[in-house]
Simulated scan of single mutants.
Amino acid sequence: MSNLSDLGKLVLRVALGVLMLLHGISKVKNGVSFIGPSLAANGLPEAFAYLAYVGEVLAPILLIVGFWTRPAALIIVVNMLFAVFLMHMSQLGELSKSGGWALELQAFYLFNGLAVALLGAGKFSVGGNGGRFN
Rank of each mutant, 00 (worst) to 15 (best):
S2L: 07
S2E: 15
N3R: 06
L4P: 00
S5C: 00
D6V: 04
D6M: 03
D6S: 08
L7C: 09
L10P: 04
L10A: 10
V11R: 01
V11W: 03
V11C: 04
R13H: 05
L16A: 00
G17S: 02
G17T: 03
V18N: 01
M20V: 15
L21K: 03
L21Y: 11
H23F: 02
G24Y: 07
I25L: 15
K27D: 08
K27I: 09
K29V: 12
G31D: 12
V32A: 10
F34H: 08
G36Y: 02
P37F: 01
S38R: 00
S38G: 02
L39Q: 06
A40D: 12
A41P: 09
A41I: 03
E46F: 00
A47P: 00
Y50H: 10
Y53K: 07
E56L: 00
L58S: 03
A59F: 02
G66Q: 04
T69H: 08
R70P: 06
P71A: 09
P71H: 07
A73L: 08
L74V: 11
V78D: 10
N79P: 06
L81A: 10
F82L: 14
F82I: 08
M87T: 10
M87I: 01
M89E: 01
S90F: 08
Q91G: 06
L92W: 15
L92A: 15
G93S: 15
S98E: 01
G99T: 01
G100H: 14
W101Q: 07
A102K: 07
E104T: 03
E104Q: 08
L105G: 05
L105M: 14
A107L: 15
Y109E: 13
L110P: 08
F111L: 14
G113N: 04
G113Y: 03
A115V: 09
A117E: 11
G120W: 04
G120K: 06
K123N: 09
K123E: 09
S125P: 03
V126D: 02
V126Q: 04
G128C: 13
N129P: 06
G131Y: 11
G131S: 05
F133V: 04
